[in-house]
């Protein structure tokens, strides 16, 4: 049994879970398989509204796979299947009448590598607004683009060059452009899959600040391999690990899920403590 660390190893950002925050996602006994390989097993956790939930763990632990269950991106992987309970605001996310397109308009995603389209900055942000049911007028579109770029803390840097290519921006700006593109459709949740792993420390710090602001409006779930980042930015942290079953098959498991402050200072599981104190992974 872990006893807790004498001194915290990582500075904690000071965020704490909100008492009684509504549950956005409820995961119960979730398994994800690729073909016959059950890659992630028995994950149960609740994700709360307007909190930042961090998923951490060594590579191969299934944290990204779990993230991709939440907006049904796994549907795009041939042979992938999800079992168990994944409820989004009380409704089964994998129910028969659920449209994965609609799911992804509510639950946006930012990827590991900044992936702006080879289009102008404006067109990148307006991209998600140009299809789907509601056709916006030009002035509404302008407003939405400005609002999205403002909430992504990018407006001041690009307002004079909205027509230049998104690829001309720096890596950190490109990632904020992708965040602007994701929030432009006014989603409920934004998923971020290692959003800073391709960025330098200064760009990373900007994105981390941005996450704090975004959490006022959106529910954020981030996957990160950077423990310090999880400690700095999140309210709750889920620690995953790669396990080997009796038949020698590697798979991901959720070890511990709790308030970030508790995970990093008083982890309940020895494996969590080993990981956050750098003894493995």
């Amino acid at each position: 049994m872990a006893t807790g660390l004498a001194t915290p190893l990582t500075p904690h950002g000071g965020r704490r879970p909100t008492e009684g925050a509504p549950v956005v996602f409820e995961l119960g006994g979730v398994n994800v398989s690729y073909g016959t390989h059950r890659a992630v097993r028995d994950v149960s956790m609740d994700i709360h509204e307007r909190e930042i939930t961090a998923l951490i763990g060594p590579s191969g632990c299934g944290k990204s796979t779990v993230l991709r269950c939440l907006n049904r991106m796994n549907d795009l992987v041939p042979g992938a299947s999800v079992s168990g309970k994944v409820a989004y605001r009380g409704a089964d996310l994998y129910g028969a009448d659920v449209d994965s397109i609609e799911v992804r308009r509510r639950i946006g995603m930012v990827f590991q590598k900044p992936n702006p389209f080879p289009k102008s900055i404006y067109d990148n942000v307006a991209y998600g607004l140009r299809f789907g049911p509601d056709r916006l007028s030009r002035s509404d579109l302008d407003d939405r683009v400005e609002a999205a770029l403002t909430s992504a803390a990018l407006w001041d840097e690009v307002k004079d060059k909205l027509n230049s290519s998104g690829h001309a921006l720096s890596g950190g700006q490109q990632q904020r452009l992708c965040i602007a593109r994701a929030v432009a459709v006014r989603p409920d949740v934004v998923l971020m899959d290692e959003p800073c792993s391709a960025l330098d420390p200064i760009a990373t710090a900007k994105i981390e600040d941005l996450m704090q602001k975004l959490a006022d409006e959106f529910t954020l779930v981030i996957v990160t391999h950077n423990m310090q980042q999880a400690a700095r930015v999140s309210d709750r942290t889920a620690f995953f690990t790669a396990d080997t079953d009796s038949e020698g098959v590697r798979h991901g498991r959720l070890v511990e899920y709790d308030a970030t402050e508790k995970i990093f200072n008083r982890p309940a599981d020895q494996r969590t403590e080993d990981y956050i104190s750098g003894r493995f992974g």
């Binding site: 789907g132 593109r181 459709v185």
Partner: peptide
């Protein structure tokens, strides 16, 4: 074709 841009579009709710 770069998969990351396809994924970006899918993640925005593109069919």
């Amino acid at each position: 074709n770069p998969v990351d841009q396809q994924h970006a579009a899918y993640a925005l709710g593109a069919t």
